[in-house]
Amino acid sequence: MGDLIVLRHGQTEWSRDGRHTGRTDVPLTARGVADAAALAPMLARRHIAAVFTSPAARARRTTELAGLAGGPAGSPTVKQDPDLWEWDYGGYEGMTTPQIQQRRPGWYLWRDGVIPGDAAHPGETVQEVGARADRVLARATAYLPDGDVALVGHGHMLRVLTARWLGLPASDGRLFRLDTGTVSTLGDEHDEPVILTWNVPFAS
């Protein structure tokens, strides 16, 4: 059985500045490009059976720079999976935590959630993000008998996905800090799901 390789996309201006970036398509910074490209040699040593990426440009670009797309004949096809989109932050899209807390003192995403935004940003509950993560895992794990599966996406979504892999509630994603430009691996020990590595910078 292979492992799940969990990649958070490289840095963007919004992630650098702490702005909640759900469905807004923000490109990688120069550092984000360099971090993603630095991952390619490590991934080239893995036997990757399938690649799933968020449709967001920042995730797709990370996938390309990391050498997971456009490989030689026989390379896995990259599948864009809408369920890998980041948490829809609704009316908090583009805001930092301190800005939100000016309106809602003590606000904490994992406990208090988001407010509705416009038609493009209706917002999601953590349970709705968890349901999307479950669908991603169902599709991805079908390929694990053939090798590793790479999942390229976003910080909060991948934290929720990790919690669900471990059989925890979606809200327990709060326990797993995940920085931009990092790779993590999920696997099993004695047939029980575990974290094998976590939050390792691309350049490591």
Results as ranks from 00 to 15, higher is better:
residue 1 M to V: 13
residue 1 M to R: 13
residue 3 D to W: 03
residue 3 D to H: 05
residue 3 D to Q: 10
residue 4 L to M: 01
residue 4 L to G: 02
residue 4 L to H: 01
residue 6 V to M: 12
residue 7 L to T: 00
residue 7 L to C: 02
residue 9 H to E: 09
residue 13 E to M: 08
residue 14 W to D: 09
residue 17 D to M: 11
residue 18 G to C: 10
residue 19 R to D: 14
residue 19 R to E: 14
residue 19 R to Q: 15
residue 21 T to Q: 15
residue 22 G to A: 08
residue 23 R to T: 13
residue 23 R to N: 14
residue 27 P to A: 05
residue 28 L to D: 04
residue 28 L to M: 06
residue 28 L to S: 03
residue 29 T to D: 14
residue 30 A to D: 15
residue 30 A to Q: 15
residue 30 A to E: 15
residue 32 G to P: 00
residue 33 V to N: 02
residue 34 A to N: 07
residue 34 A to L: 08
residue 35 D to N: 04
residue 35 D to S: 12
residue 36 A to R: 01
residue 42 M to R: 14
residue 44 A to S: 14
residue 46 R to G: 10
residue 46 R to Q: 15
residue 47 H to W: 12
residue 48 I to K: 00
residue 49 A to D: 11
residue 50 A to P: 03
residue 53 T to Y: 07
residue 54 S to N: 09
residue 56 A to H: 10
residue 57 A to H: 14
residue 62 T to A: 00
residue 66 A to G: 01
residue 68 L to Q: 05
residue 69 A to N: 02
residue 72 P to A: 14
residue 73 A to G: 14
residue 74 G to Y: 11
residue 76 P to D: 09
residue 76 P to W: 01
residue 77 T to C: 08
residue 78 V to S: 04
residue 81 D to W: 04
residue 82 P to C: 03
residue 83 D to G: 00
residue 87 W to D: 05
residue 88 D to H: 05
residue 88 D to R: 03
residue 91 G to N: 10
residue 91 G to W: 06
residue 94 G to R: 08
residue 96 T to K: 00
residue 96 T to W: 02
residue 100 I to R: 02
residue 102 Q to I: 01
residue 105 P to I: 01
residue 105 P to L: 08
residue 109 L to Q: 11
residue 110 W to N: 07
residue 111 R to F: 09
residue 118 D to A: 06
residue 119 A to V: 10
residue 120 A to Y: 06
residue 122 P to N: 11
residue 122 P to C: 09
residue 122 P to G: 09
residue 123 G to R: 06
residue 124 E to H: 10
residue 129 V to W: 01
residue 129 V to L: 11
residue 130 G to D: 05
residue 131 A to L: 13
residue 131 A to W: 06
residue 134 D to R: 13
residue 134 D to F: 00
residue 134 D to V: 07
residue 141 T to A: 12
residue 142 A to T: 13
residue 143 Y to T: 07
residue 145 P to T: 08
residue 148 D to R: 02
residue 148 D to W: 01
residue 150 A to V: 15
residue 150 A to W: 09
residue 151 L to C: 04
residue 154 H to G: 15
residue 156 H to L: 11
residue 156 H to W: 02
residue 157 M to C: 09
residue 157 M to D: 07
residue 158 L to Y: 02
residue 164 R to D: 09
residue 165 W to T: 06
residue 165 W to I: 04
residue 166 L to H: 05
residue 166 L to F: 07
residue 168 L to T: 02
residue 171 S to H: 11
residue 173 G to C: 03
residue 174 R to D: 13
residue 174 R to A: 14
residue 176 F to N: 00
residue 178 L to E: 06
residue 178 L to N: 09
residue 180 T to F: 03
residue 181 G to Y: 07
residue 183 V to H: 07
residue 185 T to A: 14
residue 185 T to L: 12
residue 185 T to D: 09
residue 185 T to Q: 14
residue 185 T to C: 12
residue 186 L to P: 11
residue 186 L to C: 11
residue 191 D to P: 05
residue 192 E to Q: 14
residue 195 I to N: 09
residue 201 P to Y: 03
residue 201 P to S: 06
residue 203 A to S: 14
